[in-house]
């Protein structure tokens, strides 16, 4: 029935094999009422195409932007989003929670 994260990780592998730069963003910690639990993930390729979700849509745009940096640099990054964040007005979580998202490049040697 529900296909949860299945297709996302397969897409990551397929994109990588097709020669794309690919990043994987995963919710690793949550506080308060976070929209998606730890382990939820988003995969992003160097076209800016993405699949999956790490929030209800609140911060995906920002994660994609950071993911493109990670694809370019190859260095993993930890991102934190919450209402207390100074960029909250733009990309904060309307539900009042805080989430940490770990972004890593797929295919590092």
């Amino acid at each position: 029935m529900l296909n949860r994260d299945e297709d996302i990780l397969q897409a990551a592998e397929n994109w990588q094999k097709a020669g794309h730069g690919v990043a994987l963003a995963t919710v690793v910690e949550t506080w308060g009422s976070a929209p998606r639990p730890a382990g939820s993930s988003l995969v992003i390729n160097d076209d800016g195409t993405f699949l999956g979700s790490v929030s209800g849509g609140c911060v995906e745009g920002a994660v994609v932007t950071e993911a493109l940096d990670v694809i370019a640099s190859g260095k993993p990054k930890m991102l934190e989003f919450g209402v207390a964040d100074e960029t909250a007005w733009n990309v904060g979580l309307s539900c009042g929670g805080t989430i940490c998202v770990f972004v890593e490049k797929v295919g590092q040697s």
């Binding site: 990588q16 295919g107 590092q108």
Partner: peptide, 9 residues
């Protein structure tokens, strides 16, 4: 994540 790890997952 290494490609090999992703493949195994």
């Amino acid at each position: 994540m290494k490609l090999e790890t992703l493949k195994q997952v």
